[in-house]
Design a protein around this nucleic acid. Structure first.
Lengths: 318, 318
DNA sequence: ACTATAGGATAAGCTAAACTTATGCTTCCA
DNA sequence: TGGAAGCATAAGTTTAGCTTATCCTATAGT
């Protein structure tokens, strides 16, 4: 059950100042008031939050953990509450854009550079992440808009669909790959569900469902208890681990194009066409874009729709 | 000023249930109690949080924003509070290791692969981030230990130093670079503080202090109001933007070694030796490592201390 | 060894806020 | 038209938060 929230605020100050007296002074209350509130919180949670030494409070493990929960919220609240009344507005000149990691790294600096040559007073904050974090950031107003990987099935985003507008722009194909060595020792032409189910997998932690999506797409079955031997927060490291022969992983076709051509990694194909991942422009539906946002958005879309970029992402399997 | 925290909880329920009566039922209180608490919160914040329609509450923009602040915290608190008493414990077989991004991508998959060949039951979760996030994760028990960039001045981590043990392993040099074009048009041999201060900069958002550290190291002066035209969360994208001529940025020497040799980017040198960044192994001082942690740690250290890896990171300036 | 200081705990009483019951207002539906 | 439902308001009761006063204890200084 949730504790009294005002006591969490008192706890935050006690932990930060490491003193009941200092907290009392900071909150313009008496020392016994603070002492008693801390005790009541400990009673609610049924665990001591501090070890009392002479003139000193040492946080217990539970105290540490509670502080880690409470601190980000209170800091953020302090930052944001003064502006709670102001309309959603962007600081003049700054654009906050998101994109999928690899795509963003490849193209966004270039787009921004070209745009800045046209409009030198524009500045950028860029975030390259997977879909869910980017969508969360759009919703929270951290990002103005983002290019987002939206998987083939639109139903994957049910709870978000009402507040975003989604404009599809580009298709990426997602393929399961492993190294040549691993293929010859472990797969050897047997692309069956049963064989694949028994192998080792490497996943991208920001995209935990990609493997199950791949199995579902290709076999219409749920892959349970996959042996995931490594989780990474870097796509490049994932490719690197795949090339080392540590197992199988799902990769974006255009990002392993060269490796496939060189025979360093092998795609695992089935009778189904490759799983498709749509890159879309996502923004808050009710948001009124600034002129800067609109201009860069249109600029970026135009650049992306040139034939050379589209051709880059078409992979027709083996 | 911060509002009453228990009223934030009431607000969260009103927003979630979109009903004062339903909230009253959920919290086992009366409807007027909830109505009055919401009004008092609106009075504190001096802004309406809901537009009252008949039998219906429509969140205002401020209401939406407050909910976006409050919801993540309350959901997380509900998840975590039941476990607040449990000791910090690791799942058997899993190692959670952190490393600086580029270093981690280059070497950690390899180390893990080799280790797994010795000990196949070990699994990994890897995080490649900058120092502060990694240290925070160690402190929170999210990581078992991490290789961390620790800058030249040990005093940069005063509030953390008592709880971590830090074992230096490798040196990296940090240099300021820009493209050849940008150098010729904007720098042209003038490496003075004043000239540099007027130029454009690109930063890595996870390492916001690196530029000021560079200026401090090289000029013993604080660089105020640098014109930061782009912030990225990707080192590669930062290098890419630098190569495009968007401005200056600080990079790890070994990561732009090839680019410097090819003349694609130019280091900005001063009379001082390059700023040095130490990669250290950091763990919680009082933590008792498991056998698995100890074994991999020793394995990794041994691998890193081989001559070929050390030689890779020595850059002696131009 | 003694005294002063400082910081947290505890007790008892006062005050303010939270809560209740009762009532009013308004829109919608049968 | 009348009843239902949901939010607002008023007035009174109850409870929790706060206060002042006091105690305990370790440490530092004389």
């Amino acid at each position: 059950m949730l504790p009294d929230f005002n006591r969490l605020k008192v706890f935050y100050h006690i932990y930060s100042l490491n003193s009941i007296v200092a907290t009392a002074n900071a909150l313009h209350l008496s020392q016994p008031a603070i002492s008693q509130q801390l005790q009541k919180l400990e009673g609610e949670l049924k665990v001591p939050l501090f070890t009392r030494l002479h003139k000193k409070l040492v946080p217990t493990a539970a105290g540490e953990r509670l502080f880690n929960l409470v601190e980000p919220f209170i800091e953020k609240l302090q930052d944001e509450i003064p502006y709670i009344r102001q309309p959603l507005d962007r600081p003049a000149g700054m654009l906050r854009i998101g994109a999928p990691r690899e795509f963003g790294k490849e193209y966004l600096p270039r787009f921004c550079h070209e745009f800045r040559q046209l409009y030198p007073d524009v500045m950028f904050k860029l975030k390259f992440k997977e879909a869910i974090p980017l969508l969360t950031m759009i919703r929270e107003g951290i990002l103005d808009y983002a290019l987002v990987d939206v998987y083939f099935k639109q139903g994957e985003l049910p709870s978000f669909s009402d507040i975003f507008s989604v404009a599809p722009l580009l298709k990426e194909e997602m393929i399961l790959v492993c190294s040549q060595d691993y293929y010859q020792q472990n797969i050897a032409g047997d692309h069956s569900f049963k064989n694949l189910l028994s192998k080792e997998y490497i996943t991208d932690e920001d995209d935990p469902s990609i493997l199950s999506l791949w199995f579902k797409h290709n076999f219409h079955k749920i892959a349970e208890n996959l042996n995931i031997v490594m989780t990474l927060d870097s796509h490049e490291a994932l490719i690197s681990a795949l090339k080392l022969g540590m197992g199988l992983g799902v990769a974006t076709a255009h990002l392993v194009w060269d490796e496939i051509q060189r025979g360093e990694v092998v795609p695992i194909t089935t009778l189904r066409a490759n799983m498709v991942n749509m890159i879309s422009l996502v923004q808050l539906q009710d948001k009124v874009p600034t002129l800067t946002e609109k201009t860069f958005r249109d600029f970026m879309i135009a650049r992306m729709q040139k034939a050379e970029i589209l051709q880059r992402f078409q992979y027709t399997g083996s």
